[in-house]
């Protein structure tokens, strides 16, 4: 596996407080890496720092290129980001929202989208099973449907580095599994996928490796079966849990022990 994303010494301070504190990590290309940790652990901030969306110290490189040296537009041609919440007052159809993902590839003088743009947008809509909703106004979609459109928008950017902040939020079980499976296939095609996740069982069953953040620092990293231990869950989340094995896949399955 080749090295995709390399993060070294990344730190972010907001209002004099260190939100993310000296993070070193390597995210291999062709795999899905899950970023887990309790609320306020710095997951969202780390994702933003990697994309240069917040002022940060340290360095971030992708396939050997320091991202900070690239112009925004050049970066947007191989990276994409799905935010936790994406709202708009604009009167956009779902298809038009997906087409936004082609902006980094369109020239200033181009009056309308190219045939390539259109077919990539259609493919992205189909990938998230939203073709039937393409002509609906974005605001009329449910939260889960909007989330899938955002993922389709990111896919339309054909990202080799895809970052997502809680992409399974608002999604029902079917859509959660379908989305994570889609991301896994995108990774298998060679992309580097890094996503923040709340649901530890989803993280355990879909991610090739996990990075655990706690108080802005990484406290564990590696394959799920090594990372997810009762001791770690106790330390990071303050919960007691029994780790089982999925009878089919052998992946860790977390059964929480209720307090009292």
């Amino acid at each position: 596996m080749s090295v995709g994303l390399e993060v070294s010494g990344v730190a972010v301070q907001l209002g004099g407080r260190a939100i993310v504190d000296g993070i070193d990590m390597v995210v291999p290309a062709g795999s899905v890496t899950g970023l887990i940790g309790p609320n306020g652990a710095g997951k969202s901030t780390l994702l933003r720092a990697i994309l240069g969306l917040v002022p940060a110290m340290g360095s971030v490189s992708f396939c050997g290129t320091d991202l900070a040296t690239l112009p925004r537009r050049a970066r947007a041609q191989f990276t994409a980001f799905v935010e936790q919440n994406s709202e708009t007052d604009a009167r956009l159809t779902a298809r038009e929202a997906v087409m936004l993902g082609r902006i980094p590839f369109q020239s200033v003088w181009q009056a309308s989208p190219s045939a390539d743009d259109l077919s990539l947008a259609e493919a992205a809509l189909a990938a998230v099973e939203m073709t039937a909703f393409a002509d609906r106004l974005y605001q009329t979609l449910s939260g889960g449907e909007q989330q899938r459109i955002q993922i389709a928008r990111a896919l339309a950017q054909q990202p080799r580095l895809l970052l997502l902040d809680e992409p399974t939020n608002h999604l029902d079980v079917h859509a959660q599994l379908a989305t994570l499976d889609l991301l896994r296939r995108h990774a298998q095609a060679g992309a580097t996928v890094l996503l923040a996740l709340h649901d530890l069982n989803l993280a355990a069953s879909f991610c090739d490796s996990l990075v655990v953040l706690h108080g802005g620092r990484p406290v564990a990293a590696g394959p799920p079966e090594l990372v997810l231990t009762p001791a770690l869950l106790r330390q990071v989340y303050g919960v007691d849990a029994t780790i089982l094995r999925h009878p089919g896949t052998g992946r860790p399955l977390i059964a929480y022990d209720l307090p009292g």
Binding site: L51, R72, F81, S86, E87, T88, L100, G101, Q150, Q157
Partner: peptide
């Protein structure tokens, strides 16, 4: 979809 989205679109 806001400033962040615009920045990630280049």
């Amino acid at each position: 979809f806001g400033d962040t989205a615009a920045a990630t679109l280049g």
